[in-house]
């Protein structure tokens, strides 16, 4: 058991614990804040696995933007300070699905690798990542870009109904 293993375990525990808190807490906004902790712990996992760039992308995109948007949206609603007692949706189906999926994946992975050890690949620096993304994975990368662009345009069209409307409709 090396220091890195210990760190991995600890960060994993933090991530899982925070994730559990996200779904069990009755404080709406705190759920979002627990999500920050969870995602930061995942970023920490990436760091331990020497995938520096991915770790900081995780922080930049998920902590800095996605969760902020989420919190933003929650605060626009009437999120109370303190517990909301009307959060009474039955949790067990979700627990079943989530727990089942997690357990299944864990079993699958454990069964697949057993005790075989894999050498850590060389550090995930920006240079190496760039070479890979724009080398062997350039097609999926470009496809993803097009997908995101389509989503962007779709969002604009949806949020502005006057685009594409006929002049009569526009006048109304």
């Amino acid at each position: 058991m090396t220091g890195a293993d210990l760190l991995l375990l600890a960060l994993g525990a933090v991530a899982v614990g925070a994730g559990l808190l996200v779904v069990t807490t009755r404080h709406l906004v705190r759920a979002g804040l627990y999500l920050v902790v969870c995602l930061a712990a995942v970023a920490g996992l990436y760091l331990v696995l020497t995938a520096e760039l991915v770790a900081w992308v995780q922080v930049l995109i998920y902590v800095g933007a996605v969760v902020v948007l989420l919190l933003f949206a929650v605060m626009l609603t009437r999120a109370p300070i303190g517990a909301s007692d009307d959060l009474d949706r039955p949790g067990w189906p979700a627990a079943l699905v989530g727990g089942g999926a997690g357990l299944g994946l864990a079993v699958l992975l454990v069964d697949a690798f057993r005790w075989s050890t894999v050498e850590l690949p060389e550090a995930g620096t920006a240079e190496r990542l760039g070479a890979i993304v724009f080398g062997s994975w350039v097609l999926p990368f470009e496809l993803l870009s097009v997908l995101l662009l389509a989503a962007l345009i779709g969002a604009i069209v949806l949020s502005r109904p006057e685009i594409g409307a006929s002049p009569e409709e526009e006048r109304r």
Binding site: V29, L33, V36, E52, L53, W56, V57, V59, L60, V63, G64, A65, V67, V68, L71, F72, M75, A79, I81, T125, A126
Partner: peptide
């Protein structure tokens, strides 16, 4: 010294907004 210092800086500065939201809501 950090190989991807620029990215680190931008990512970490972005975390500040969480503090603002925390203080604002709490």
């Amino acid at each position: 010294p950090l190989d991807i210092g620029l990215f680190f800086v931008l990512a970490v500065v972005g975390v500040g907004v969480v503090a603002v939201l925390m203080s604002a809501w709490a």
